[in-house]
Amino acid sequence: MKNTSICPKCNSNSILRIPGKAGSYGSGNIIMTGFTVLSAIKITRYLCCDCGYSEEWIDDKEDIKILIDTFK
Rank of each mutant, 00 (worst) to 15 (best):
N11Q: 15
P8N: 10
G20P: 00
L38M: 09
S12N: 06
R45T: 12
D63T: 06
Y53L: 12
I68E: 10
Y53C: 06
D60N: 12
G34H: 08
R45W: 06
Y46L: 01
G28T: 01
Y25T: 08
T4I: 14
I6S: 04
T36M: 04
E55G: 01
K61C: 07
C10L: 05
C48T: 05
I66H: 01
C51M: 08
R45A: 14
T44M: 02
K65P: 00
S39N: 15
R17K: 13
I66V: 14
T4L: 14
G28E: 06
C49E: 12
N3L: 14
E55W: 09
D60Y: 06
I18H: 07
I41L: 04
S27N: 13
G52F: 15
R45F: 09
I18E: 14
I30R: 02
L38Y: 10
C10F: 06
D50K: 06
I30H: 05
G52N: 03
K2F: 15
N3S: 14
G23D: 09
G23F: 03
N13T: 12
G34S: 05
T33E: 09
G26D: 03
I41F: 03
C48Q: 02
G52V: 10
C7I: 04
L38I: 08
W57S: 01
Y53E: 13
D60H: 03
N3Y: 12
V37L: 05
D60A: 02
L67K: 05
K65C: 04
I68P: 00
L16S: 13
I68L: 12
T33H: 04
T33P: 13
I18P: 04
D60W: 05
S54L: 09
R45E: 14
S12T: 09
I30V: 15
A22T: 12
W57V: 08
A22N: 07
V37Q: 09
S54T: 10
S54I: 05
K65N: 12
C48Y: 03
C49F: 03
L47A: 07
N3F: 15
T70P: 03
K42L: 15
L67I: 08
I6F: 10
N13Q: 11
N11E: 15
I68R: 13
T70F: 10
N3Q: 14
I31R: 03
S5C: 13
E55T: 12
L16E: 15
C10Y: 04
G26F: 04
M1K: 00
S5I: 14
G26C: 05
Y46M: 01
I41H: 00
T70Q: 13
G23W: 01
L16D: 15
I66E: 08
K65W: 06
D63H: 07
K65T: 07
V37E: 12
S12Q: 08
P19D: 04
F71A: 03
F35S: 10
K61T: 15
G28L: 01
T44H: 07
G34K: 11
K42W: 13
G26P: 00
